[in-house]
Design a protein around this nucleic acid. Sequence first.
DNA 1: AAATCCACCAACCGCATTCCC
DNA 2: TGGGAATGCGGTTGGTGGATT
Length: 251
Amino acid sequence: MGRPPCCDKPGIKKGPWTPEEDLILVSYIQEHGPGNWRSVPINTGLLRCSKSCRLRWTNYLRPGIKRGSFTPHEEGIIIHLQAMLGNKWAAIASYLPQRTDNDIKNYWNTHLKKKLIKLQETLGSHNPLAIEAAAVNTEFTGVQLQQQHPFSSSTYASSTDNISRLLEGWMRSSEKNSMQSSAIDIKNSSDGLICHEEFCDVKFPEMMPATAEAVVEVEHNRSLTFLEKWLFDDGTGQVDGFMELPSDQLI
DNA sequence: AAATCCACCAACCGCATTCCC
DNA sequence: TGGGAATGCGGTTGGTGGATT
């Protein structure tokens, strides 16, 4: 507090990253691994503050990041988790490993929030659970449609994506280690689905109620694993991101 | 064809928390 | 143990490109 922000130092560059800068950053991280961000601009000569380097890495250059439009299933996950957790984007992002918190936040602000508001107006309900339930049901319809007419998933659009791909092989090997440590926060449920520790005390309605009355009705009939079942077992049997991880990495 | 509007998203800002000396 | 520095996170802004007039 009271000190000048690190990015305000003279000579620190701002604005969009160039492919050259990306390459420098990626090369450095490939060699030293992510972390110790303060040393990154020092050792690479990048005219960026450590914060900016970290952000660039976590949001764009990190391998495994999925770009492009969100699937209806992803939307459903976000809507549900947002209703539960609020604007805890980092927490929500932890359930969608291929998406960054920034991505999710942007998508929420530009798409989902408006969608829910519209839905709220349509339904005339002020019960957030009921709204969410209706939204989720809409997403389910979307999922079902997608199953019939699957559209191709997002395409890599920028040069940074190509750079990120350079690292994918490297990440796969290093992921094993990080996955082991992060496993502390993740619990494997009996049916093989991933369940975050913090949700183990959280209970959810057995069914998503579409009306306020229904919300009250199911209030007494909540199930611990509903979220996981709904999120991960919706017929596709797939969860974006999780399912692409080798099984030996899922604890 | 030009001007304006609008949606999207990359990046920045500031506060909170964690780390380290 | 306290204080400064580093890191993490959420809110916000501004540039850009496509759509509309």
